[in-house]
Amino acid sequence: MNAKLLVCALFWPLAAMAQGFAGLGGSADGFDVPQPEYQFEFPADHGPHPSYRIEWWYLTANLTGEDGRDYGIQWTLFRSALKPFETAGWQSPQIWMGHAALTTPERHFFAERLSRGGIGQAGVTADPFEAWIDEWRMAGPTLQTLTLTANGADFGYDLNLSASGPLVFHGENGFSVKSADGQASYYYSQPGYAVQGTLHLPDGDVAVTGNGWLDREWSSQPLSADQSGWDWFSLSFEDGDKLMAFRLRGGRGDYTSATWINADGSSRSLPDGSVIFTPLETSRVADRDVPTDWRVSIPDEDLDIRVQAQNTQAGMETRFQYWEGPVTVSGSHKGRGYLEMTGY
């Protein structure tokens, strides 16, 4: 097999995701699919689930430097499977992909790593927790206390994270519905990390502190066939409350879901239609028009906010393209957070 064919064979699931993310709406093809009333087991569920097609460990952080400037970082490990099982060595059907990014007010740095499973180059263990691809690591004795490291050609970071507050389960006890047809994922978060460490930038190192948010999600068919992308918000407000909210865009209209997280860690799910998402302004990012200024409102929660990109050019020009960057929040609630947009 020549090199190009080998790459296509190894990373076909990722190529499907690149096609407007429509690959996430395809058939489950023998993989397990999420069911209601799943009983989570920890620490095991912090680890991989090879009988499901796709999975990710996704951490973002809003940071402030000793220089007084605001920064954002992303660290993500994706698992995508060719077949619904795991085997050792080069016969493993598991594909791993890592994304790392660092956003400043003026620049957006990113890097990507790829690996076949079964050979030790990438993977996740649950106890003690460790997620890695090459030298990039998110690791700790448990998910509550982590070290995080990644680097690209002209950036890097070394961070320490310590969580307060409980895990938050989205949807119905972690069963997160994504469409009117019932497609779903298992989805929980740890939104309460305190972060401190060092960013490595072309102009030198910067000591930073801030707050981090980890998302864990796995499924085999999370979208309907007509859904082309999503807009996802993770927002932390100055009063200690938090909000996770997303809309999935489809030919039959939008599907929305949200979780309101109180300052004490308790949470409640907000069903489809509770959140109103209104794009206000778009930015030209690479060759796409992407909404980077939003109004988000939840009438039942007295929330009416404006969410604006810290740097409109936070495009992830990776094998599948998306936008991911830190945002500021003003209006009825003030704060910071992260925004992810796919399918534009």
Results as ranks from 00 to 15, higher is better:
residue 47 G to R: 03
residue 77 L to F: 02
residue 132 W to N: 06
residue 127 D to R: 08
residue 81 A to W: 02
residue 142 T to S: 08
residue 141 P to A: 15
residue 134 D to H: 14
residue 70 D to H: 15
residue 60 T to F: 07
residue 35 Q to N: 12
residue 126 A to S: 01
residue 56 W to L: 01
residue 46 H to P: 10
residue 62 N to I: 07
residue 87 T to W: 11
residue 53 R to N: 04
residue 73 I to D: 00
residue 69 R to T: 06
residue 142 T to V: 03
residue 150 A to C: 15
residue 48 P to H: 04
residue 47 G to F: 06
residue 129 F to T: 08
residue 111 A to I: 10
residue 100 A to L: 12
residue 60 T to P: 09
residue 125 T to H: 02
residue 117 G to A: 13
residue 148 L to T: 00
residue 69 R to C: 11
residue 106 E to C: 13
residue 136 W to K: 02
residue 82 L to E: 09
residue 40 F to N: 01
residue 89 G to A: 10
residue 98 G to E: 01
residue 89 G to N: 04
residue 65 G to S: 10
residue 37 E to M: 04
residue 93 P to M: 03
residue 119 I to Q: 14
residue 88 A to H: 15
residue 44 A to T: 14
residue 103 T to N: 02
residue 49 H to E: 05
residue 113 R to D: 10
residue 130 E to K: 10
residue 33 V to R: 03
residue 147 T to Y: 15
residue 116 R to L: 13
residue 49 H to K: 05
residue 120 G to P: 07
residue 150 A to G: 15
residue 59 L to P: 05
residue 118 G to Q: 00
residue 143 L to V: 13
residue 49 H to G: 08
residue 145 T to K: 13
residue 49 H to T: 10
residue 67 D to N: 13
residue 97 M to T: 11
residue 81 A to D: 08
residue 71 Y to Q: 00
residue 58 Y to L: 04
residue 53 R to T: 06
residue 134 D to R: 15
residue 110 F to N: 08
residue 68 G to Y: 04
residue 136 W to P: 00
residue 67 D to F: 12
residue 109 F to G: 01
residue 99 H to G: 11
